[in-house]
C-alpha cells in the first residue's frame, strides 16, 4: 500500500527523480510475480491446507480459465480499450454448446463461435468506427448478450456437458491439467504473435500512440477490431473449459470474469493507457488472483470476501499502473 501514498508525495515536487520513475516502472512490471511468492510463503505459514494436491490442481484449473480470459483482455487493454462483455460471451457460448437437448452437435460449436465473433466485431466496430468509449459499448453489449442468454435458457441450469469437454476441463496429462495445457497453448500463440509478427508490433504501436501509428500507415481501426474479436473468442474458449470443469452451466457461470480478467491483466503489468503489457506478466497476474481467491475459501472466510479481494487487487493495481503510465509518458 505504501506504493500508493509514496508517489503522491513525490509528485508534488516538479520532476520526479529518475530512480523513482524506475522504481515505479519495476513495481508495475514485477508486482504480480513477487506478490505471488509472498502470498505462497504466507500460505505455508498460515494456511497449510492450500498445499493439498487436490486444491493445487483446482487452483491451476481456475488460474487457467482466468488466464485465458485475461490474455484476451490484455490484448484489448493494449490498444487502450476494455472489454466488459467477456463474461456474457463466456456464459452464452457455454450455454449454447452445452444445453442442447439433443446432445452435443458440432453445429452448436460453430454457432457459439459465430456469436463470439459477432460480439467481438460489434464491440470493435462501435469502438473503432463510432468512437464510443470502450466501457460503455462493451457494457451495453454485456447487458444485451446477458438478455439473450436469459431468453435462451429462461434461467434454467443444464448439466449436459459432452464427454470431450469434460476431458478438457478436468482431465490431466501427467501432473498437468488439460486446462493448463490449453492456457499454455493460448499463451504461446498470443506471445508469439505479439513478439514476432507485424500484427503484434501494430498492436503495441496503436496502443502507445494511436495517431502516430495511423500516420505511419498502420491500419489502426482494423487492428483494434481484431483485438476485440480475439478477446471474445478467447472468452468463449475459457467458457468451454470452465463448463467442462464444473460439469454444468447455470445463470451464474462466469459472472466474476469481468472484474477478475481486468484485475489480472492490470496487476500483471498492463497499463490501461495502452501499449504496455505482455502475456507472461498477465499470466502471473492470473495466478496471483486465483491463489488469493482460493485462499479466501481455504482459510474459511465467508465467500463474499472474495468480492472485496477482487476490488482491492483491482484498485491497488490500477493505482500502481496509473502512476506508472503517468510517469513514463511525461
Amino acid at each position: 500500500m505504501s506504493a500508493t501514498s509514496l508517489p503522491a508525495r513525490a509528485l508534488r515536487s516538479a520532476a520526479p527523480s529518475r530512480r523513482f520513475v524506475r522504481a515505479v516502472d519495476l513495481t508495475g512490471q514485477w508486482a504480480a510475480p513477487v506478490a505471488c511468492l509472498v502470498v505462497l510463503m504466507f500460505a505455508v505459514a498460515f494456511v497449510p491446507r492450500f498445499y493439498e494436491l487436490g486444491n493445487l490442481s483446482t487452483v491451476a484449473i481456475q488460474a487457467s480459465v482466468l488466464g485465458i480470459v485475461a490474455t484476451g483482455q490484455m490484448l484489448v487493454l493494449l490498444v487502450a480499450g476494455l472489454d466488459l462483455s467477456v463474461n456474457a460471451v463466456l456464459g452464452l457460448g457455454a450455454v449454447i454448446v452445452i444445453s442442447n437437448q439433443q446432445g452435443f452437435s458440432p453445429l452448436s460449436l460453430l454457432l457459439a463461435l459465430a456469436i463470439a465473433l459477432g460480439v467481438g466485431l460489434a464491440n470493435g466496430l462501435l469502438v473503432a468506427w463510432r468512437q464510443v468509449p470502450a466501457f460503455i459499448a462493451t457494457f451495453g453489449m454485456l447487458i444485451f448478450v446477458g438478455g439473450v442468454r436469459l431468453a435462451y435458457t429462461h434461467g434454467q441450469a443444464s448439466g449436459n456437458v459432452p464427454e470431450w469437454l469434460r476431458v478438457v476441463g478436468i482431465g490431466q496429462i501427467g501432473p498437468l491439467p488439460n486446462a493448463a495445457l490449453t492456457w499454455i497453448v493460448v499463451l504461446l500463440l498470443t506471445g508469439g504473435v505479439l513478439a514476432l509478427t507485424r500484427y503484434g508490433r501494430y498492436v503495441y504501436a496503436v496502443g502507445a500512440n494511436y495517431d502516430a501509428a495511423r500516420y505511419a500507415g498502420v491500419p489502426t481501426r482494423e487492428v483494434v477490431v481484431a483485438c476485440y474479436v480475439v478477446c471474445s473468442v478467447l472468452a468463449l474458449v475459457a467458457g468451454l473449459v470452465l463448463s467442462g470443469y464444473i460439469g454444468y452451466v447455470d445463470q451464474r457461470l462466469g459472472t466474476d470474469f469481468n472484474v477478475n480478467s481486468i484485475a489480472a491483466a492490470i496487476i500483471g503489468g498492463t497499463t490501461f493507457r495502452g501499449g504496455r503489457g505482455n502475456p507472461l506478466g498477465v499470466a502471473a497476474g492470473a495466478i496471483l488472483l486465483s491463489i488469493l481467491l482460493n485462499l479466501v475459501v481455504v482459510a474459511g472466510l465467508a465467500i463474499y470476501w472474495q468480492l472485496a479481494v477482487q476490488g482491492v487487487v483491482l484498485v491497488v493495481a490500477t493505482a500502481i499502473q496509473g502512476m506508472r503510465g503517468h510517469l513514463l509518458s511525461r
Binding site: I266, W305, Q306, L307, G311, L314, V315, T318
Partner: peptide
C-alpha cells in the same frame, strides 16, 4: 477502473 474496483469492495 477505480470506481469499478470500489464497486467490488463495497459489494463484499
Amino acid at each position: 477502473i477505480v470506481t469499478f474496483g470500489m464497486f467490488g469492495i463495497l459489494n463484499g
